[in-house]
Design a protein around this nucleic acid. Structure first.
Lengths: 194, 194
DNA sequence: CCGCATTCTGTCACTTCATGCCAGAAGAAA
DNA sequence: TTTCTTCTGGCATGAAGTGACAGAATGCGG
């Protein structure tokens, strides 16, 4: 890796970290791109060469976590039913979240501070859902008892909804056992919510 | 109602209709507020007195539908379990959607055309979820066997997810029986998705 | 070490969305 | 008609992006 790529990576990381710090301290809307750029000794124009939008700063991590989730799904045995695959994959993801709770809490605080960010967050999770569905649909085609696309979509959407609710509970109530509560939720989904 | 309020209401409606038409024809991002204002013979400044943002044009209807849903929920018998209340309320809402399918299809086409709009749409549905939860939580407090807040939240989120999936299927596949497919989905939720 | 091609960066200009301010027009009330 | 309220238009402003182009830094072959 040459000096050029190194500096690039460093600038990108600096922009991210500095911006996060400013967001946490002054709020997202109150922080301008100009401020971020100046704090990094970089022109505003350059900022947009690293991140297409100011919002993107907050969702780079999310993209990586989604990719990680997809990998976990890919490792699951093909013969298992979709809901079980979703359950175990999200369980594994929850375990990965556990040690980083503090970061997630501050991130959530920033995200909840701005309506546009809440929207982007929701859209982000919708993106997870779409990619999850694609992955499961690929597996579904070679399954012994394939599900109708609509029913698979339902399972993915419902699982993501459950994950989100448990995630919020985990953030809101210190000491919550993320994976444990998630298991309970999926138990209810499997047995019925009536 | 005086002449002043009448003109106001007419301007508001004209802005909405003209904008929708422009969005459908040229796309949301390609339509500027200036164009909308000019087509309505109004200054851009005035536009923002009627709608806080360009996006708001697309979600006024959604707000009303949410209010309607909340009313339906309020009419449900108090002793019924949450999932059943959600099911019947959304079933009723689905019946109200049926005759307006064409409008929903074009609206969905506009909404899917822009990432920022997809985000707002997702956030809108999150808003429904929050208000639905509040309403059900109020009922829950006086119920015979009250549910834990977390479990109620889960049911609301899962129900909204199901409604969304069925809604999309209804939009995507002409001739779909919205309420019927919704019933099937809720049947699965009640019995278990395993 | 030097020159050349590649690539990154900064400046400038521009568009759009959004908001505050103030003067003036239109409607309502006396 | 006069007066008061309210809506509207124009102007100025700020922030988010984006395109174009010149210049600087880096990498590479000699």
């Amino acid at each position: 890796m040459g000096l050029r790529e190194l500096k690039k990576a460093r600038t990108r990381a600096t922009l991210h970290d500095v911006a996060m710090d400013l967001f946490a301290r002054n709020g997202f809307d109150q922080t301008t791109v100009e401020e971020i750029a100046e704090a990094c000794e970089v022109s505003p124009r350059t900022f947009f060469r690293y991140y297409a939008t100011k919002e993107e700063l907050l969702f780079v991590d999310s993209q990586q976590r989604c990719a990680a989730l997809l990998e976990i799904v890919a490792e699951q045995p093909l013969e298992d039913p979709p809901l079980e695959v979703l359950h175990r994959s999200l369980h594994t993801l929850a375990l990965a979240y556990e040690p980083e709770r503090a970061r997630h809490v501050t991130r959530a605080r920033v995200l909840d501070g701005s309506p546009s960010l809440r929207a982007d967050k929701a859209e982000q999770q919708r993106g997870w859902e779409a990619r999850l569905f694609d992955e499961l649909e690929r597996r579904n085609r070679v399954a012994a008892a394939p599900l109708a696309a609509h029913d698979l979509r339902l399972r993915v959407a419902v699982s993501m909804a459950a994950f989100r609710i448990v995630f919020d509970t985990w953030l809101g109530i210190p000491g919550t056992d993320f994976a444990g509560v998630l298991d309970e939720a999926f138990d209810q989904l499997a047995r019925g919510l009536a």
